[in-house]
Simulated scan of single mutants.
Amino acid sequence: MSKIENAKAQTASLKGWKHSKAGLWLSIGTSAFSAIGIAKDVRKARGESDTLKLVNALVGAAALVTGTALLVRELRRLGDDDVLLG
């Protein structure tokens, strides 16, 4: 197998991993760490009384909430497909 074929096979397997339960949980955990950064941005913007930075942080928070909700929905759908869960 050539290096290119091997790389394509690895890429294909990683794409499937992204939609696995473990991949979704990892994404949710990453989102939790992002929330810490957004909270710091909000606090800093309030301290500086910078409305534009505050709006930017709040839009980022809205995007984070939406993204996390999508991940949770995908996780529930995977659970519905699981025969062992009923």
Rank of each mutant, 00 (worst) to 15 (best):
M1P: 01
K3Q: 04
I4L: 08
E5C: 00
N6I: 01
N6G: 02
N6H: 07
K8Y: 09
T11W: 12
A12L: 12
L14P: 00
K15M: 12
W17L: 11
W17Y: 15
K21C: 03
K21P: 06
A22P: 04
G23W: 05
G23R: 03
L26G: 09
L26M: 10
A32S: 01
A32Q: 08
F33Q: 06
S34V: 01
A35I: 01
A35Q: 00
I36E: 09
G37W: 08
G37P: 01
I38E: 05
A39T: 11
V42M: 06
K44T: 10
A45L: 02
R46H: 05
G47W: 07
T51G: 09
L52M: 09
K53P: 02
L54G: 07
V55H: 10
N56C: 04
A57Y: 06
A57K: 08
V59F: 08
A61V: 08
A63G: 14
V65T: 12
T66D: 11
T68F: 05
T68R: 05
L70V: 13
L71K: 15
V72M: 11
E74R: 10
L75S: 13
L75T: 12
R76M: 11
R77P: 04
R77A: 09
L78Q: 12
D81K: 14
V83G: 03
L85I: 11
L85N: 15
G86M: 06
